[in-house]
């Protein structure tokens, strides 16, 4: 049983890392523009397809292995960032000072567009594609649990990006501007901050994270299709809310809590899929209405 428990802990850590990468982008965008960006899961899907394309374009020249993996990571992040920025410019920015729920509808529209376009476009199509093994897989046995180098990679990338993001937000002037915009857009503008360019930067970073998550998910669960972003997008959204939406460490924490909930659910009540994840979500929000690490906001008249 010891090995089973160790194995399940590894399983949780791996799933949680994938959730965390998507949730980080979700929570960043929300923190700045207060928009539930339904299309975020689809940015993740775009990242996976971009990485897939990179593999087929460059595999012949480079050959599978670390250099190709880094190239794929870089281009997947650029792809995710580009699609996020484009969505922001075309569908969200014109509605910035309109009722915020109208941009929620365009977010659903962008999400539908990306899914159905990828599915209808002949070069991509709805078929399930096997994601190539860019890195050779190796297995290690630790405490009776089977760990592949992919698990370690997932954890390492998630941890690095989170540390990097925390540094960016806490220590750089861009991060300071982001925090200012997140607290009060108008005051930030009066302080000479170009609010729109900060928002664009946020979308770029959030999209890049989603792109990275797309590559990692493609490597870890080697099958991609145009609708692959829906469920992880939903889970990441929940993770972000559980942790306190807009809060970076919170999103990370929420992602691992959600992965744990999924794991327990699938181990003990697997016939009722996703049940525990939602029950935990509700329980946590009823106890802490703004998430575990979220700040309480006072009502103002």
């Amino acid at each position: 049983m010891g090995s089973t428990l160790a194995q399940q802990i590894i399983n949780v850590l791996q799933l949680g890392s994938i959730y965390a990468l998507i949730a980080l982008g979700y929570t960043m965008v929300y923190g700045i523009v207060r928009l539930i960006n339904f299309a975020h899961g689809d940015f993740f899907m775009v990242g996976a397809y971009v990485a897939y394309a990179v593999f087929y374009a460059f595999n012949a020249y480079i050959g599978a292995g670390s250099p190709l993996a880094f190239l794929a990571l870089a281009i997947a992040m650029i792809g995710g960032a580009a699609i996020a920025m484009l969505s922001n410019q075309l569908a969200y920015k014109p509605l910035r000072y309109k009722p915020k729920l109208s941009s929620l509808v365009t977010a659903i529209g962008v999400s539908m567009f990306l899914e159905y376009f990828f599915s209808a476009f002949p070069l991509i199509g709805p078929s399930q594609r096997g994601f190539p093994e860019i890195l050779p897989k190796q297995m290690y046995t630790i405490f009776g649990a089977e760990i592949s180098n992919y698990v370690i990679l997932d954890l390492a990338v998630a941890a690095t990006l989170m540390v990097g993001l925390t540094f960016l937000i806490q220590k750089t002037s861009l991060g300071r501007a982001m925090r200012a915009v997140s607290q009060d857009k108008d005051a930030a503008k009066l302080m000479g901050i170009n609010v729109e360019s900060i928002i664009t930067a946020t979308f770029l970073i959030g999209g890049a994270f989603a792109g990275a998550a797309g590559l990692l998910a493609g490597l870890t669960y080697p099958r991609i299709q145009p609708y692959m972003g829906i469920l992880p997008g939903l889970k990441a959204f929940i993770a972000a809310v559980v942790g306190g939406i807009g809060n970076v460490p919170g999103a990370m924490l929420g992602a691992y809590i959600l992965a744990l909930a999924d794991n327990i659910n699938d181990t003990y009540i697997s016939q009722f899929s996703n049940l525990l994840a939602f029950l935990i979500l509700i329980a946590i929000l009823l106890i802490r209405p703004t998430g575990i690490l979220g700040e309480k906001t006072a009502d103002k008249i």
Binding site: Y30, R34, I36, F237, I238, V241, I245, Q271, F272, S273, N274, L275, F278, L279, L281, I282, L285, L286, P289, T290, G291
Partner: peptide
């Protein structure tokens, strides 16, 4: 009763959660 003390997006996600719970239970 319990969830309406939440606000805005937090309420949204709780109602989403309940909707999915109803679906999951029916499915089981």
């Amino acid at each position: 009763f319990p969830s309406l003390r939440l606000k805005g997006d937090y309420l949204a996600i709780v109602t989403l959660g309940f909707g999915e719970i109803i679906k999951s239970v029916i499915n089981g």
